[in-house]
């Protein structure tokens, strides 16, 4: 868990920056760099999934296996048709025009993209959304406030909330079967896929594989691995022969991880804190001064604001 260790170190830096006014500037300017570096180092070694949409036949085995593995309620004889509080993944069908203008049917497996720098993790005020450091983004209900800011932050609109639960609602989403991963198994959906449309492995290996497939079939695939760079990179990657924006993927995904922007602002706050405190204290010292003599402020303040009782 060297990732956790790094998180601790950068936190220590931050606390230090809070504690030492003079050191604040130095620490604050170092921090964003440190965070980015940590993300870069772990990115290659994390788990990921590669979904090849040209190989998916829409059999829904993955969606049903997911329900089974995660103990989610099922409606007998029916396959899930949308993400909801009881559905971590489902297969969406599209009748779309491919690059040659032919109308084809394509099936898109939807689930959490497990962003490398996840907006939901960055947004969560209580670390309920948590990066395992190995790729999967996991949710810890016991810490959750139910504020739903992760739903706002998610660029893919994935998390689902129990709207009908009175006081113990949860955020529900794919967790890449993290429990199975720790036991050396693949996620349930990967194991269940009969066509090999979903591959599981190290993200960097999957990227190499994806580009190799594109290179060997340049006529078949569009030259784009979705998730390679979108929102700073995701652990779940997609290959397709149809442009992604025709398949229900958000069109204007930023290339920078959204947390980068907010963290840029947040790491300026030490300056704001010390700047504002210094300015206000300075002003107060100046306005509370005694015209003639140099008197300690406290004593001055006491005489300036006389007790109404006295």
């Amino acid at each position: 868990m060297d990732d956790l260790e790094k998180a601790r170190i950068s936190r220590r830096d931050f606390l230090k920056s809070l504690g030492l006014g003079a050191a604040a500037a130095a620490a604050a300017s170092v921090l964003p760099g440190a965070a980015a570096q940590a993300a870069e180092e772990t990115a290659g070694a994390t788990w990921g999934m590669l979904v090849d949409l040209t190989r998916c036949t829409g059999c829904n085995s993955c969606a049903l296996a997911c329900k089974e593995a995660n103990g989610l309620p099922q409606i007998p004889g029916k396959v899930p048709t949308a993400l909801d509080a009881d559905t971590y993944t489902f297969v969406e069908a599209f009748q779309v025009a491919n690059l040659r203008g032919e109308i084809v049917t394509r099936y898109v497996k939807r689930q959490c993209m497990h962003c490398l720098e996840a907006a939901c993790v960055s947004a969560c005020p209580a670390a309920a959304m948590h990066s395992s450091g190995e790729g999967p983004i996991i949710y810890r209900a016991s810490r959750c406030l139910g504020c739903r800011y992760c739903e706002v932050a998610c660029p893919f609109g994935i998390p689902r909330f129990n709207w009908d639960n009175s006081i113990t609602p949860k955020i529900n989403k794919c967790w890449m079967c993290y429990e199975r991963l720790k036991e050396g198994e693949e996620p349930a959906c990967v194991s269940a896929c009969p066509t090999g449309a979903i591959r599981f492995g190290r993200r960097e290996d999957l990227l190499v594989q994806a580009h190799a497939r594109i290179a060997s079939h340049p006529d078949r695939y569009i030259d784009h691995v979705l998730g390679e760079s979108e929102v700073g990179g995701t652990s779940v990657l997609y290959l397709s022969d149809v442009p992604f924006d025709r398949l229900g993927f958000p069109a204007n995904l930023p290339q920078v991880a959204p947390p980068k922007q907010t963290e840029k602002i947040l790491y300026k706050l030490p300056y704001v804190i010390f700047g504002m405190a210094a300015f206000m204290t300075g002003t107060a010292l100046y306005t509370h001064r005694k015209p003639a003599a140099t008197v300690p402020v406290e004593a001055d303040a006491a005489t300036e604001t006389p007790d109404k009782e006295a």
Binding site: R11, F14, S122, C124, P125, A126
Partner: peptide, 13 residues
Amino acid sequence: RPLVHWQYHSVLW
């Protein structure tokens, strides 16, 4: 919980 679990990267925190 935000008072206990410090999440200095979270605006909401």
